[in-house]
Design a protein around this nucleic acid. Structure first.
Lengths: 265, 265
DNA sequence: GAGTGGTCTAGACCACAGC
DNA sequence: CTGTGGTCTAGACCACTCT
């Protein structure tokens, strides 16, 4: 439904368009529930930036009248989007666009936990940040052409002053034009917060492939462990709206005083 | 609410009891929504075995009249339980109790994936199965007293004929009375299926702590890798109804041709 | 008190599976 | 055709937050 290129139009005018696209029940072949269509419309407004991370979105009643459906249908759409962590409901206050400027969200994407004690925000130490042509493997994972411009960031995370994580972060050059070492160093807060606020790219979900590997010389040196030391190797691909891959991240974790936590449910 | 010891009573008689326990809205302090109370009642029926894994549960309309609430309220309760993977909805057929005798469920608990190709069901090779007194650490994790009877199972999983996983599985002796090497060997199907069918203990969720470690001599021998080889070490605690821990599992994975897959969302 | 999300109800109709 | 879950509506009332 409604795969038009709507770009940046928003407000009452575009709502009228949207309304006309809605197909009610009863059109049996290729049937799509109303609330799914509402979900798509809301997602579009998130994607185009009509409502930005951290901001409040219109109330259920307002959205219901805008889309010409009942409040219950809007409610179901929002429930789904909240379950997908795109929106956050706050009783008595309203519904907000999820943002990476929040502890809970950050720890969804940083699963390394100290053996004893609570989660912490390890300081990030930048090693390098430069543009280059995408190697074939990275290009494939980011859905780019080999040779397209990409940005490579290398950094270390120091938990309790001990280097614990080494990250190699690959980003599409086009989306992150203007990202420099200074911008990274000056920014206070989580990197995904920077990406969402300064570059309009929000990471929604990610898939990680985890292995145990032996430290090679370069990595051992940076992590201050012996060559051959067992490390957790985490390869992450992150996706934004529409399941478009926008980050490849390769991490090496020292797991002597930390562990990677995962819940199966 | 309703923390009575109901044990095995079921049917119309117990429903009457249940009904009387329900508190409607408006009792402001310690307010609990009706659908939460319905959730708890349904969970009880799962726990006591009124409806067993794989079986169909009564229709929404039937449950609504049994609990004297509207169908919508039952629906919300079931929606929640389905989201928690305790129930499975099948349109046009009914709602069923989730079971481990299903591929999809099994792969929720086995996250090791071959580099190329689809998920497979690796054959399990039993190494030993014996009863002993719980070491302090295991007792703590299983909420037992040190010295209580526990069962220790050790086994290997052979992916494509190469030993890939070594597991050390600790279970409370009381719950798994009668579990022997023969029972394990004779049983066709997933181990959690055996546990749920033969011992009435259903694993609902689990938490894993993952590290990279070097293979010691004993493990290296069994996995046919050199001593010191980097392995994924996975420590799992599994929980049944009421978040009671009922299994500790320590695994060592060879990740040269497989990886542990995890989705962050 | 006003506004928001959260709960609960009753009823209508649709899509799907199985007889 | 019947019964199941799935969608949608309209309306009432409650709990929470902020002014």
């Amino acid at each position: 439904m409604n795969a038009n290129a709507r770009d940046t139009n928003q407000g009452a005018a575009s709502d009228a368009e949207q309304r006309q696209e809605l197909t009610r029940e009863g059109s049996s072949p290729t049937f799509s529930p109303l609330y799914q269509q509402i979900k798509a419309l809301i997602t579009q407004s998130l994607q185009t930036g009509e409502w930005r991370p951290g901001e409040i979105i219109p109330s259920e009643i307002e959205l219901a009248s805008r889309f010409k459906v009942s409040q219950g249908t809007v409610r179901k759409a929002i429930d789904d989007l909240a379950a997908e962590n795109l929106l956050v409901r706050r009783q008595g206050r309203g519904t907000f666009v999820a943002t990476h400027h929040e502890d809970l969200v950050q720890f969804r994407f940083l699963r390394l936990v100290p053996d004893s004690g609570e989660q912490e925000h390890p300081p990030s130490r930048l090693i390098e940040c430069r543009r280059l042509r995408a190697p074939a493997e990275i290009a494939r994972q980011l859905n780019l052409r080999a040779g397209d411009s990409v940005i490579l960031i290398r950094r270390a995370l120091d938990f309790s002053d001990a280097p614990t994580v080494l990250d190699e972060i690959w980003l599409p050059g086009v989306l992150f034009r203007g990202l420099t070492a200074e911008r990274l160093n000056d920014y206070k807060g989580p990197m995904y917060g920077l990406f969402e606020t300064e570059f309009g790219t929000r990471m929604i979900r990610a898939v990680e492939k985890i292995r145990a590997v032996a430290a090679d010389e370069a990595i051992a040196d940076l992590l201050k462990v012996p060559v051959g030391f067992p490390l957790l190797n985490v390869e992450r691909v992150s996706y934004t709206y529409g399941d478009r891959p926008v980050e490849v991240r390769r991490g090496w974790y020292v797991t002597t005083r930390h562990y990677y936590e995962n819940e199966l449910s």
